[in-house]
């Protein structure tokens, strides 16, 4: 199957690969997996006191579309507030990357990873 140029670009030059210090209280982690293909994705965000995402890193084991989806969302969430980041929909991701229907689940994975990271941040701080 042919990947779009945008997917290939993200796969060849993934943005923001790596990890943030999970012991840092301003860092939150979202972990999700897709049973359909066995892909696993970890997305971490570092959030300022004002609730703005200052940094984001990801690590994904999966196909090119899954890597591109997570790479793209790390770019998108930086500079956004948590509420703005929560607005990102899988359809935005799949449209930007021109994902074919069989790869839509990769964009769902990325959307759920942001949601999980935001949830993790809120559960740590809303006490």
């Amino acid at each position: 199957m042919a990947y779009s140029d945008k997917v290939i670009d993200h796969v060849e030059n993934p943005r923001n690969v790596g990890s943030l210090d999970k012991n840092d209280p301003s860092v939150a982690t979202g972990m999700v997996g897709a049973p359909a293909c066995g892909d696993v994705m970890k997305l971490q965000i570092k959030v300022s006191e004002q609730g703005v995402i200052e940094d984001a890193k990801f690590k994904t084991y999966g196909c090119g579309s899954a890597i591109a989806s997570s790479s793209l969302v790390t770019e998108w969430v930086k500079g956004k507030t948590l509420d703005e980041a929560a607005e990102i929909k899988n359809t935005d991701i799949s449209a930007e990357l021109e994902l074919p229907p069989v790869k839509i689940h990769c964009s769902i994975l990325a959307e759920d990873a942001i949601q999980a990271a935001i949830k993790d941040y809120k559960s740590k701080h809303d006490k």
Binding site: V32, G33, A34
Partner: peptide
């Protein structure tokens, strides 16, 4: 299409 969200399990997978 549903994702799996079990942090302990996924951590181990990673």
């Amino acid at each position: 299409q549903q994702t799996l969200q079990d942090p302990m399990f996924l951590m181990q997978q990673m």
